[in-house]
């Protein structure tokens, strides 16, 4: 079942002589529960693509349909509501709120939706992320790996339709990086959580069901590595 489809996405920065095409007519779709890795050299447009998919950046032209909804046709506030319910974003630099502790950062999208805190789910996520002894710490009191786990917890808390991770291990050492990928894969497998992940690391990219290669804003290769959740083809 198709969960995401993008059609003819273009994104340009600047004008005339300084015009840079970050995305050049990109189209693809993703099935529900699929784990897709996007790889490519710096400046190939992969982060731009991910941000447009996540609704935090706007395409110059083209459409992004998530669960059939054209997200860029939504008004600002509607799009924000859509993001907190359907999209989980994970950034390279974690982007946690400095005034909130671990629990509060994780539960924030849920509270933004006006819902009371789901204590059971919070305990489960905090446990899964290995943050049980850090629940009352502020982000500044955590290591990079711990901050990224909080960021993942926040992205997963609302059971989003799709999780988008922008180089989640780019700022971490190998051990912490491996743990983060393990957590994401675990969530993808156990929850059938659709996951799109950007990485520079080929070994991580190869753990996905499908790998999309990008260069100069275009998809140069879209390769299925394994059947969804299965073995390498």
């Amino acid at each position: 079942m198709e969960i995401l489809r993008c059609e003819d996405l273009c994104k340009t920065y600047g004008e005339k002589d300084t015009c840079v095409k970050a995305l050049d007519h990109v189209s693809f779709s993703v099935e529900k529960g699929e784990f897709v890795s996007i790889v490519g050299p710096s400046g190939s447009g992969k982060s731009t693509l991910l941000h447009i998919l996540g609704g935090v950046d706007k395409p110059t032209s083209g459409k992004v349909l998530i669960g059939g909804t054209d997200i860029h046709a939504l008004k600002e506030d509607k799009l924000a509501i859509f993001r907190r319910r359907q999209i989980g974003l994970i950034y390279q630099f974690y982007n946690l709120l400095p005034v909130l502790n671990v629990d509060e950062n994780i539960v924030l999208p849920h509270l933004l939706d006006g819902r009371a805190m789901d204590k059971e789910r919070l305990d489960k996520i905090v446990g899964e992320m290995g943050l049980s002894d850090r629940r009352n710490n502020l982000p500044s009191q955590l290591s990079g790996g711990q901050q990224q786990r909080v960021s993942i917890g926040r992205a997963l808390f609302n059971h989003p339709a799709i999780v988008l991770a922008d180089e989640p291990t780019g700022n971490l050492d190998r051990k912490n990086g491996a743990e983060i990928i393990h957590l994401l894969k675990e969530s993808n497998r156990s929850q059938k959580q659709t996951l799109i992940l950007i990485t520079h690391d080929e070994s991580i990219a190869l753990q996905a069901d499908r790998m999309i290669c990008m260069e100069d804003g275009k998809i140069t290769k879209d390769e299925r590595i394994r059947v969804m959740g299965g073995d390498v083809q």
Partner: peptide, 17 residues
């Protein structure tokens, strides 16, 4: 800061982010 900060249960209980 080294101090730890507990979550205010009454606020999170009523869902006011």
């Amino acid at each position: 800061k080294t101090k730890q900060y507990k979550t205010n249960k009454s606020i999170t209980k009523h869902g006011s982010a």
